[in-house]
C-alpha cells in the first residue's frame, strides 16, 4: 500500500519529478505526459501532487469500461481497455489522473511498476519518499 509521499516542505518547484516520470514511462522528456505534477503559486508556494492509491478509488468507480484496476494495493489503468472518456479525471478528488497528450488514454502513477520510482530518485531537494501509510503515521507520531 505504498505511495509517493511529500515531506510537506522543501519542494522548490523545479519539476524534475515530472520530467523524470515522463522519461521513465515514455522515454522522452516532457511535462504534459507526467503522472506527478508540481503546483506553483506566487510568491512562495510549490508542492508536488500525485496519486495516493486510494483503498476505494473513485476513479475506478467512475470508469464505465473497467479500465481502472486494482493490482494488490496499486491502482492502475489498463490502457488497452481505456476509451479516453475522462470520467476518472472528474471523479478523482486529487487531480491525480489525466489523459496522455498523445495517446489520449488515462495515465496515472503506477509507482514505476516495482522499479525504483524515478521521481523519488531524481528529486533534487530529496523531499519525495516511497512510503506505506503505517510508516507515515509512525513518523507523524514521533514529530
Amino acid at each position: 500500500m505504498a505511495r509517493i509521499v511529500y515531506a510537506g516542505e522543501g519542494c522548490t518547484g523545479c519539476k524534475t519529478c515530472s520530467v523524470a516520470c515522463t522519461y521513465a514511462h515514455d522515454r522522452e522528456f516532457n511535462l504534459r505526459a507526467s503522472r506527478i505534477w508540481v503546483v506553483k503559486e506566487e510568491p512562495a508556494t510549490d508542492y508536488p501532487a500525485t496519486c495516493v492509491h486510494c483503498a476505494k478509488p473513485r476513479c475506478q468507480e467512475a470508469c464505465p469500461v473497467k479500465a481502472v484496476i486494482k493490482a494488490g494495493d496499486l491502482v492502475l489503468v489498463d490502457e488497452g481497455a481505456c476509451i479516453g472518456c475522462g470520467a476518472c479525471i472528474e471523479a478523482c478528488p486529487f487531480g491525480a489522473i489525466t489523459l496522455h497528450p498523445a495517446r489520449r488514454v488515462a495515465i496515472k502513477c503506477d509507482l514505476c511498476r516495482g522499479e525504483e520510482p524515478q521521481c523519488v530518485k531524481f528529486c533534487p531537494a530529496g523531499v519525495l519518499k516511497l512510503q506505506v501509510p503505517a510508516a507515515i503515521a509512525q513518523e507523524k507520531r514521533v514529530k
Binding site: C14, T16, P124
Partner: peptide, 17 residues
C-alpha cells in the same frame, strides 16, 4: 528568508524568496 525555489530541473536550487 522565506523559501528556496528553483528553475526547471535544477540541482543547484539557488533562488531565494
Amino acid at each position: 528568508y522565506v523559501k528556496t525555489r528553483s528553475c526547471f530541473a535544477c540541482r543547484i536550487m539557488c533562488k531565494k524568496v
